[in-house]
């Protein structure tokens, strides 16, 4: 049983790290704020969720696992809000390559 849990936990940890690397790579390669945000914030959040789940499986003490799950839960709740705030700030302040947008249905309204 513990071997199975170990494998699941290892897979989750590696998956999480893969997401984190992806986030870093996207952050470096993508051309403007919006694309970087897509590449960084969300994969990093999902990666953290995977890592936290994987780590929680490794904890012997149940309360430590609960704390790890709390970190994941908070991240899950706060990440979209933070992403929205940065995105809105970037759009309103005119950062990012707004001319590169294929369609901008917000421009006509604001």
């Amino acid at each position: 049983m513990s071997a199975v849990l170990d494998v699941i936990s290892a897979v989750l940890l590696l998956l999480g790290v893969g997401f984190a690397l992806l986030a870093g790579l996207g952050l470096l390669r993508f051309p403007d704020v919006f694309s970087r945000m897509h590449a960084a914030t969300k994969p990093a959040t999902l990666g953290l969720l995977c890592v936290v789940l994987g780590a929680a499986l490794q904890m012997e003490d149940g309360s430590d696992a609960v704390k790890l799950l709390l970190v994941g839960a908070f991240q899950f709740l706060t990440a979209p809000v933070a992403a929205h705030m940065i995105g809105r700030a970037a759009y309103r302040s005119g950062t990012g390559d707004l001319d590169a947008l294929v369609v901008d249905e917000l421009k006509d309204v604001s």
Partner: peptide, 30 residues
């Protein structure tokens, strides 16, 4: 730009948090 840096810092923080979680998993120390 500043938003670029916020995004980077945000991602960096997530990576650091993930690192501490991995450390805790490795040592079993919570």
């Amino acid at each position: 730009s500043v938003p670029d840096r916020i995004v980077a810092l945000d991602a960096l923080l997530l990576v650091v948090v993930a690192g501490i979680a991995v450390g805790a998993a490795a040592t079993g120390d919570g």
